[in-house]
Design a binder for these strands. Sequence first.
DNA 1: CTCTATAGATAACG
DNA 2: CGTTATCTATAGAG
Lengths: 102, 102
Amino acid sequence: MARGKIQLKRIENPVHRQVTFCKRRTGLLKKAKELSVLCDAEIGVVIFSPQGKLFELAAKGTMDGIIDKYMKCTGGGRGSSSAIFTAQEQLQPPNLVCLSSP
Amino acid sequence: MARGKIQLKRIENPVHRQVTFCKRRTGLLKKAKELSVLCDAEIGVVIFSPQGKLFELAAKGTMDGIIDKYMKCTGGGRGSSSAIFTAQEQLQPPNLVCLSSP
DNA sequence: CTCTATAGATAACG
DNA sequence: CGTTATCTATAGAG
């Protein structure tokens, strides 16, 4: 992203990987919070570093409440407007689906 | 971020907010997956749109496993290397804490 | 939806 | 650990 392009694969150098993890984790949490503020969405993020360290972000509400809501949507999720996906399907094709007008 | 600067507040126009939500949600999930791949981290993201729609991303493992691991780290979290924060504390000061060398 | 210019994120450097 | 050059994400237009 900066002085050099990134590879879409695991960083091998342990030191470099640690630095990148720290920076990107910060950026990801920032982005998550921005999305929740801009669009009034409830967002929860959980990150486990390779060293087993846990990082959590709960925007709008608590993580506990988000997990509870998530459980209801998946476990007993017979709600009509739920979209569960694992992102493998959603992100691999360069295909954005947006609504430009209602 | 592009033809105009963004405000760090809730978007009022419903249509504009919907479009932004869609674009940023896609970008956030992409970033999350990149982080998990680059740094070999286990990441779970849960997003509830204002309309109550649920979006989930589980990178490296299942969301169920991530939540389970999360519960153990918080509930019985007497582990020595756990960092729980709500991002309010972590992101507001322009203060990055990184390890340059181990 | 697709394209483009620009704001924002960040890899490498000091 | 702060700065800078670049790359990427994305707001706005077509």
